[in-house]
Amino acid sequence: MSRFVTVDIQEIQRSITADPVRIMWRAAWTMLIATILSCGTVVVIGFIAPSAIPANAAPFLSVGLLAIPPTVWFLTTERVKADIEVATGSEYSVTFVLSAIATSAVVLPVLDLVISPAEWLSRESTLTRITGFTLTTAVWLEAAKYLLVRWRAWDVYDEPFRAIMHTVSVALGSAAALSVVQLITYNSTPTAFALRVLANNVIGLIASLIISYGLVRSRRGEAGIWLLPVVFIAACLLTGIVLTFRSGLLNGQLGLLGAVPRPLFAFGFVVAYCVAGMAFVRFIYTNMQRTWALTKNELED
């Protein structure tokens, strides 16, 4: 073997371009854009003309909002799976359903009835709230999703595109359960519910994708003992930070200058987090694939 390896970067780029993983990212972004547009429309209408949404149409609008992310995702992936010849599709739907069941049957009762972070965290300092949300809401939500994926889909996590499909499905299932329970429990306006749907889907998805990176590396035997737990803790911490700042933006405060567009602030914050978070996850996945391509190139030489 030559000591100096000639690497064709453009060939590596072309191989990544044709990769099903790229197609999966496109599908995930399609789902996210549909969610952002639908929720954003309701938020803007609710801010500009609150009476424009009839009261008797609000429940149907809310159900429609929470159905958009999983519907768009599964429609998009069905089309994608035909392109990349995935053998079976039902396992992803089952992951979605199991995630929804685990969240609604285990996580939410524990958080609402036992831990109840809203009762004791709301008046604490920012640092305490970040710590509190990390050690309560974030860890319970992410642990349920991690355990489900670890139990059902561990073997397929050596293929990144399958990993992304399972990860997004499990995140959307959890978010759908959160949204349904919040719809039933709280008599929210469509604006408030739209913000919840967007936050549930985006925050859960980014955290799950970060953890999926650790799972993929671990499954492929490329990580030591510590990468997966560190990635899990980092994802929970990030969720705790985002929950704290989002609630701080959203909770009403009196302003001497008049009405403060807090729903718009919260919406903008979550959209910005979505863009930054997805860019980061895409970055680490692309780096991982480039490393594989380089390694494969070296081995072939």
């Binding site: 004791w120 050690l135 035997g221 997966l228 737990p229």
Partner: peptide
């Protein structure tokens, strides 16, 4: 490494849950 990565992650989850309970009781 795969087995112990999973065990350490489970340990991290349990530790964080316990810390959350301690924080709740303290506050």
């Amino acid at each position: 490494s795969q087995r112990w990565a999973h065990y350490v992650t489970l340990g991290a989850i349990l530790s964080m849950v316990l810390l959350g309970i301690v924080l709740r009781e303290t506050i």
